[in-house]
């Protein structure tokens, strides 16, 4: 008899085991929903799965009576736009500042303590400041995400840069590299896979900040909708929206992982 630590599931087993918790969750929900609805047909807490279909039908495929829009897609578009702009800005800022910190010791001394301290500011605590200074428009929401995750990206990129063996940097200099060419030919390409990792790991935070900002001041967006219908205890809307957000986040994570494997195959081996 082998030890449990040495037993590995086959391909089918891996897929089945991976699906099992999802199946259990769905089953538990259906069971709980049925039980509650039998006791009280007006129960709002665990709506029947059929009501989710109604909701999705209503929100995704029918035009809203008041605005004439398909709310599901308007919300998704608004949220994704904010999120992607913010991730783009954070990624670009994080990469360039992290690279500068990694390449130039003077910049490191200048910026790293500041970034470390700045990153400790709880972003939600300064959300009111952002709304006061930037207004209630898109800028404040994007700024919240950017402020929330850029310091982490900078520090992670700078950390990765400091992990690159010194031998490589010396070697590049003996091959004629300047600080600039050293940065763009030796450091930058080795930081890009880490940028993908960092953005992946920060996706959860980014969504958190996005939904927080939308909950407080917005007229559209996935987070806005959830907090709007909360007033009516509309679990039949909230739950599909949460599942949709989860799906989007999962797809982004998967896409980034695939991108890393495709564009940086050399970074996979180690």
């Amino acid at each position: 008899m082998s030890r449990l630590a040495n037993l590995h599931p086959g391909t089918g087993g891996t897929i089945l085991l991976g699906l099992l918790p999802f199946i259990v969750l769905v089953f538990a929900y259906v069971l709980g929903s049925n039980t509650r609805l039998q006791e009280n047909p007006d129960d709002k807490l665990l709506p029947a799965p059929s009501s989710f279909v109604d909701t999705i039908e209503r929100y995704a495929f029918q035009e809203d009576r008041r605005s004439g829009e398909r709310l599901w897609w308007t919300d998704t578009g608004a949220s994704l736009e904010r999120l992607l702009i913010a991730l783009g800005i954070s990624g670009a800022l994080g990469l360039s500042i992290g690279l500068a910190i990694g390449a130039v010791p003077y910049v490191r001394s200048l910026l790293l303590p500041f970034v470390a301290a700045f990153g400790m500011i709880p972003p939600l605590a300064i959300l009111p400041i952002l709304f006061i200074v930037l207004g209630l428009g898109e800028t404040a929401k994007v700024a919240l995400i950017v402020i929330g995750i850029t310091p982490i990206v900078i520090r992670d990129i700078a950390l990765r840069a400091s992990e690159i063996p010194h031998e490589q940097l010396i070697k590049a200099q003996t091959l004629g590299a300047s600080t600039w060419t050293l940065s763009i030919r030796v450091l930058l390409p080795q930081l890009l896979p880490r940028l993908i990792d960092t953005v992946r790991l920060n996706l959860g935070c980014a969504w958190l900040f996005l939904i927080a900002a939308e909950a407080i001041a917005s007229t559209e967006g996935l987070g806005y909708r959830i907090f709007l219908v909360r007033r009516y205890m509309a679990m039949d809307v909230i739950l599909p929206y949460v599942a949709w957000i989860t799906t989007l986040a999962f797809a982004m994570d998967y896409g980034l992982r695939r991108a890393r494997r495709t564009f940086f195959p050399w970074a996979e081996a180690n």
Binding site: P165, E167, Q168, I170, V186, F264
Partner: peptide, 11 residues
Amino acid sequence: IVFQRYSLFPH
């Protein structure tokens, strides 16, 4: 320079 290790560019 040739070091014992780490002087190639892995990317």
